[in-house]
């Protein structure tokens, strides 16, 4: 059963469909929350909230606005950032490195990537590795810390215009790289 069908079934309040969605993406949601909050308890809370939100809002999911995975990871990321702000947590330690998402390129022993097959995951890593460090940092601060461009500019003591350019280029390149890899796959 594809993801969209699952979401339609969830919209009809079928708990089994939510269980299936959890089995597919529970680890992704939890791992993303953990990457953002660096707190296992908060990440559990975020994950519960995310799937509850999916349960309630499945009816508002529109396939034309993006894949289920895109929708779900966006909810998860936003919820984790909310939690981060509310707790006023400054994630430390194993939290995603601001210096350029290096930890994304370091595989943790014994853990399989969940949804992406290893080649797709490798593509994302390559795409990130190909970004200039200052663009990676801007992207990481925006995505994993939920900072606005203004906040990033203040934090890094850079002009706002510079940060805007970095954010734009970083995501644009990531997107272009992934699109290119996909089209190569099809050849």
């Amino acid at each position: 059963m594809d993801d969209e069908t699952l979401i339609r079934r969830i919209a009809r309040s079928e708990p089994e469909a939510l269980a299936e969605l959890y089995d597919r993406y529970g680890r992704l949601v939890y791992s993303l929350a953990l990457a953002i909050t660096n707190d296992a308890g908060l990440s559990e809370e975020v994950s519960q909230d995310v799937f509850l939100q999916v349960w309630r809002k499945a009816g508002s999911y529109r396939p034309e606005a993006g894949r289920v995975l895109t929708w779900l990871s966006r909810i998860a990321r936003n919820r984790a950032i909310d939690m981060l702000r509310r707790q006023n947590v400054r994630p430390e330690g194993s939290w995603i490195s601001l210096d350029g998402l290096e930890s994304l390129t370091a595989e943790r022993a014994g853990l399989e990537p969940f949804v992406l097959d290893s080649s797709s995951r490798e593509q994302v890593r390559q795409a990130l590795a190909a970004l200039p460090p200052e663009q990676r940092t801007a992207l990481a601060l925006a995505y994993f810390r939920g900072l606005s461009q203004q906040e990033i500019a203040a934090l890094l003591h850079q002009p706002l215009g510079t940060i805007k350019t970095r954010v734009r280029l970083a995501l644009h390149k990531l997107r272009a790289f992934l699109a290119e890899e996909h089209s190569e796959d099809r050849r």
């Binding site: 939890y30 953990l34 559990e44 966006r74 930890s103 943790r108 853990l111 992207l139 995505y143 992934l178």
Partner: peptide
């Protein structure tokens, strides 16, 4: 947004 979803998938996977 799809590109960001790919970024989300690239974080280290941890079993909940």
């Amino acid at each position: 947004l799809d590109a960001l979803a790919a970024l989300a998938q690239a974080v280290p996977a941890v079993e909940p």
